[in-house]
């Protein structure tokens, strides 16, 4: 098939539009929610210097979320609809970004950052040649900031892994986080209600992902140049050997056969809540209530803008 022209958002078919929105929402939601969690470390990080560094990363991620949400401005969406007044069940971020941090669990913070940053790098790479010029144009800016995040995370991981307590805490965090990290590569459910119009046999009220066409469309339309499976395998091929080099045991690493770098994400490796399918942990609802608190308390109807719309 020929690659559709995404340069004119007015002239997209319903399917093209849905594919683009599905791709962007998950990118934006991941960045936004991860940033929310990072800010929890502000004024609580191990040292003043590390406090500043993580605050920087939080702001970077938030800035990236802002750039991605803005892409949907072409489709008539505003921050109000996309963030402050969206039903929490309509967010499509992976559950790894929504889990709360235990007080003082810096091992979780740096490990989670590493797992997400590697996935982010791979995803961004697969967007460099996106058929949507707006997406392709925004990738480079974001990539430059992400590389600092990953190096920062790795420096900390290597430091912590050397100490006995650090190593133990990293292992515990890995056991807890790893299944959730795998949900990054799970297919997205369409927005609630959209299934109703289709002849899909699982289309009841549950917004579970059905391996629907939208994921195939994202790749077929050239919006992203790698499939979720490919991204997941690449990710495993990077993180598993690295974590093992720190003497950490990776639970259900997905390694198959004798091949050194053959990996596969299987259903057994995944947690019950996958985020992408609209099923979230309870922590997400609390987080949502907290970040929308002022907006609701003051009866606002429009989130405040400070910066100009990105070009």
């Amino acid at each position: 098939m020929t690659t559709p022209d995404f340069s004119d958002p007015e002239n997209l078919t319903a399917r093209e539009r849905q594919a683009l929105e599905c791709l962007i929402k998950r990118l934006a939601d991941d960045e936004f929610v991860l940033a929310e969690r990072y800010t929890e470390w502000q004024v609580r990080a191990p040292t003043l210097e590390s406090d500043l560094a993580l605050a920087n990363n939080a702001q970077d991620e938030l800035g990236h979320a802002r750039l991605w949400y803005d892409v949907l401005g072409d489709h008539g969406y505003t921050e109000r609809e996309l963030v402050y007044e969206r039903d929490p069940a309509e967010f499509r971020h992976s559950t790894i970004v929504e889990l709360p941090f235990e007080e003082g669990d810096w091992a979780d913070a740096v490990l989670r950052s590493y797992l997400c940053d590697v996935a982010e790098e791979l995803r961004l790479e697969a967007l460099e040649a996106s058929s949507s010029p707006k997406i392709a144009n925004r990738v480079a800016k974001i990539q430059q900031e992400e590389s600092y995040h990953r190096e920062h995370a790795q420096n900390w991981l290597e430091r912590l892994a050397e100490g006995e307590e650090g190593h133990e805490r990293l292992q515990a965090a890995l056991d807890r986080l790893f299944p959730h990290a795998l949900t990054i590569f799970e297919p997205c459910a369409p927005p609630h209600g959209e299934n109703a119009n289709k002849t899909n046999e699982t289309s009841d009220d549950e917004p579970r992902a059905t391996g629907s066409d939208v994921e195939a469309d994202i790749v077929d339309f050239g919006l992203r140049t790698a499939t979720l499976e490919e991204l997941g395998e690449e990710w495993l091929a990077i993180v598993v050997p690295y974590l093992e080099s720190l003497d950490l045991d990776v639970p259900e690493s997905g390694q198959t056969g004798d091949g050194e770098f053959e990996f596969e994400v299987t259903q057994e490796m995944l947690p019950d809540e996958r985020g992408r399918d609209g099923i979230h942990t309870d922590a997400w609802v609390d987080l949502y209530d907290d970040f929308t608190h002022t907006y609701r308390e003051l009866g606002r109807s429009e989130p405040t803008k400070i910066m100009e719309t990105p070009e």
């Binding site: 936004f32 929310e36 800010t39 929890e40 502000q42 004024v43 003043l48 406090d51 500043l52 605050a55 920087n56 939080a58 702001q59 938030l62 800035g63 979320a65 802002r66 949400y69 921050e79 963030v83 402050y84 907290d290 970040f291 608190h293 002022t294 907006y295 003051l298 606002r300 989130p303 405040t304 803008k305 400070i306 910066m307």
Partner: peptide, 23 residues
């Protein structure tokens, strides 16, 4: 109030402000 800021831009500014104070 970083979290409770009523918009993404406000949240960015508030995070940056708290970051500066730690600096």
């Amino acid at each position: 109030f970083i979290r409770q800021s009523p918009s993404i831009d406000r949240k960015l500014a508030f995070s940056a402000k708290v970051q500066d104070e730690i600096g």
